[in-house]
Amino acid sequence: MNFFKPALILSFAFLAVFGEAMLPAPRSLLGAQIDLLPALMVYAALNADIVTLALLAVCGGLWFDSLSANPLGVSIVPLFVVGFPVFLHRELILRTAPFAQFTLGAAASAVSPALVILILLNGGKEPLIGWGSLWQWLVLTVSGGLAAPVIFALGDWCGHALGYKLRTEMSFRSDREIRHGKILK
């Protein structure tokens, strides 16, 4: 089994969560911290197997919750919920089209935080929500949509640069070779 792609996706998720917790710039500039995990789930759903997708949802959710005040495990289901339907219908999706990538990234980034909030409210927690949350939701959606094509390009580039190369078939076949001249016996 080729572990390169799962390792690459999980490493990117780890760094993305750390970056979100480390860099205050998006929050200062836009009033909201951007989240790359939903867009990464879309990438994994379209380019990796189901095991990688499940691992990304579990590990990404755990890492996110461990650095946040969220109860541990709350982010796992929303991440899997946005990735699983995309995985099931991946043959019908134009995965190389940037518009499709943007749309899926934006939709995933809109659904995932809404589900987390819903789970938190259902669990009796009091997250900080108000009218300003609509703006934050918009920022999350648009930034997730914009991040998706970048993640796809980055993932493809890393795959080509560091992954196993595809074995190309040669047109030459020795059994079909036309030999000229006298056949020596």
Partner: peptide, 13 residues
């Protein structure tokens, strides 16, 4: 050392 990555909490570490 870091801030809460979620937008619905205000915590730092």
């Amino acid at each position: 050392v870091l801030r809460d990555p979620a937008n619905w909490w205000r915590t730092v570490q």
